[in-house]
């Protein structure tokens, strides 16, 4: 598989949230606003890249029987470092993401990619895979929070993660018709369900077209 495919598959074909359905705990919880989603995406990309690279560098040294414990220790250390950095440099984001930054440790994406890809491939491949998966995750979370914020509050806003008072954009489209259910937990489930249904619809149509072409 060439290098560009390794990177590209994480974005759409094997998107961690929409296709592989990994890491849903954090995806549903932090998608209340675009700023949170972007911040969490950045954190996950950092941890994923670093863990993939480190595990790929160490893959020949780690004995095969104790692979999983070593992965868990490496990932926990990285997440704690990222958490402390976020506490220092992005305090507003740290407050709003709360307990879900430490929960990146048990996020299935990171341990899953480490187990299935980084422990078997070289450093450059692992780096590309991590970047693709991380960007796929960020894209998915941004899509979910776009819908939740738009329908839930009637507007969109994005703040600078490093400086909470700086507004990148803030649009208010409709205030009176917002359905505040979507900022609540129930709305998260419903939004993700509808997005997955849409993707499944596209997949079914593609399969039907392929079958028709085959029959001809």
């Amino acid at each position: 598989m060439n290098k560009f495919d390794t990177f590209k598959k994480g974005l759409f074909i094997e998107n961690p949230i929409f296709v592989l359905l990994l890491g849903l705990c954090s995806a549903l919880a932090i998608t209340t606003s675009l700023t949170n989603a972007l911040g969490m995406g950045m954190a996950v990309i950092c941890v994923l890249i670093m863990s993939n690279v480190i595990i790929s560098l160490l893959r020949k040294i780690i004995p095969n029987e104790i692979r999983i414990p070593v992965f868990i220790v490496i990932i926990a250390t990285l997440v704690k470092c990222v958490q402390m950095l976020m506490n220092a440099f992005t305090p507003a984001l740290y407050e709003s993401l709360g307990v879900f930054i430490p929960l990146i440790v048990v996020n299935c994406i990171i341990l899953g990619r480490a187990e299935s890809f980084a422990s078997k491939n070289g450093v450059v491949d692992s780096l590309l895979d991590a970047l693709g998966m991380g960007l796929g995750y960020t894209f998915a979370v941004l899509v979910i929070s776009f819908f939740r914020e738009l329908i839930g509050t009637g507007g969109l806003s994005l703040f600078n993660p490093f400086d909470a008072s700086q507004v990148i954009f803030q649009v208010q489209l409709f205030g009176d018709y917002s359905v505040s259910l979507f900022t609540q937990p129930a709305g998260a489930f419903i939004t993700l369900g509808c997005i997955l249904a849409f993707i499944q619809c596209l997949k079914i149509r593609k399969e039907r077209k392929a079958k028709k072409v085959e029959e001809k």
């Binding site: 259910l181 937990p185 129930a186 489930f189 369900g193 509808c194 249904a197």
Partner: peptide, 19 residues
């Protein structure tokens, strides 16, 4: 409905339970 079979309808059910 066919596009909802499997995980999507399960998620929407979870949403209703959360409501």
């Amino acid at each position: 409905p066919e596009s909802f079979k499997g995980t999507p309808i399960a998620l929407i059910t979870a949403g209703i339970m959360a409501c």
